[in-house]
Design a protein around this nucleic acid. Structure first.
Lengths: 159, 159
DNA sequence: CCGTATTGGTAAAGTGACTTGACCCTACAA
DNA sequence: TTGTAGGGTCAAGTCACTTTACCAATACGG
């Protein structure tokens, strides 16, 4: 019933601000950007200073371990060439290897090196630290609630 | 699922995943990406098909209206040259104008055109639709809770 | 089996969204 | 005044991509 006519909705009342209060988009984006920066910062502090944001995408959940390059490309919504370029970089920097798939002679599989898994450990740690910070700000219970709600949201819109 | 044979795992407790359960990072990122795709999709459907993800950043909360290019550059964490490049595109595509700042002869101010504000209306509408979808999935109360928690989180880490 | 289509990956060339470095003009404080 | 910082732009270079094309292996319908 709220959305039958969008007239009142879309016209913002304040003239010099196109947006009113933060939309759910911004509310999700801003903390995610905090996480992202934190991950990069920690990685750089721990000697993985040859990684940048683009590389980070490859390590993103659920991680590249065992995946086929084309799988990863689809997951990250980039062309397989673009992804292969990234994989080349990461292989050169000794974060992973591309090994032949034993079950399909066309395919390859990504295998993390020791350095690669170490980097992922740093990432997980960085996020863990941030989580405890947020936990303190929101309270344990409320933070747990937030996490649960986000989890539910992700399950719903996984398609 | 896949072969159990490759069970040389990192210090992560979960078997064949370098990551265990989704970290808060992924939980924030994934719905944000849903929002992002939805915004672009809606824009393209409504005739704003000359916009891409990079342009969207400029329109992000709280929007470019009245801002100085250098402000926007800092906000988006890109160089002022990079941002100026984007503004050039958006000006050429008739989404905004760069006008001289009346109070500072060095500066310019971004002013949205009619087409620009229309695009923002579409964005807000797209997010509003998604919000009602999520509201139905989580329930009104729980979704309101989620929004409140996210708002709190953003206030905390605004610095 | 065969022939065809599909899938996984690569190579090469082009490009465009950036970067770095320089510069100009204005503002402001000393 | 001067010196310094801030806002913006121009120009050149770069590299992370895209596009196009192609090969090899697999899947599948007969």
């Amino acid at each position: 019933m709220t959305t039958k006519s969008s007239s009142r909705f879309t016209k913002s009342q304040s003239p010099d601000q196109a947006f009113g209060p933060p939309l759910i988009g911004a509310l999700l984006r801003m903390p995610w950007e905090v996480v992202q920066r934190r991950m990069l910062q920690r990685l750089h502090e721990h000697g993985f200073d040859d990684l940048d944001a683009a590389h980070l995408n490859v390590f993103q959940y659920p991680g590249p371990q065992g995946a086929k390059p084309s799988e990863l490309a689809a997951r990250l919504r980039v062309s397989k060439q673009a992804l292969n370029y990234l994989l080349g970089e990461l292989e050169r920097l000794d974060y992973l290897e591309r090994r032949p798939d034993p079950d399909d002679l066309r395919a390859k599989r990504v295998a993390l090196t020791r350095r690669g898994t170490s980097a992922i450990d740093v990432i997980r740690d960085a996020v863990a630290v941030l989580e405890t910070e947020w936990e303190q700000q929101l309270g344990r219970q409320r933070f747990a609630q937030l996490r649960a709600l986000l989890q539910e949201l992700n399950q719903a819109s996984s398609g």
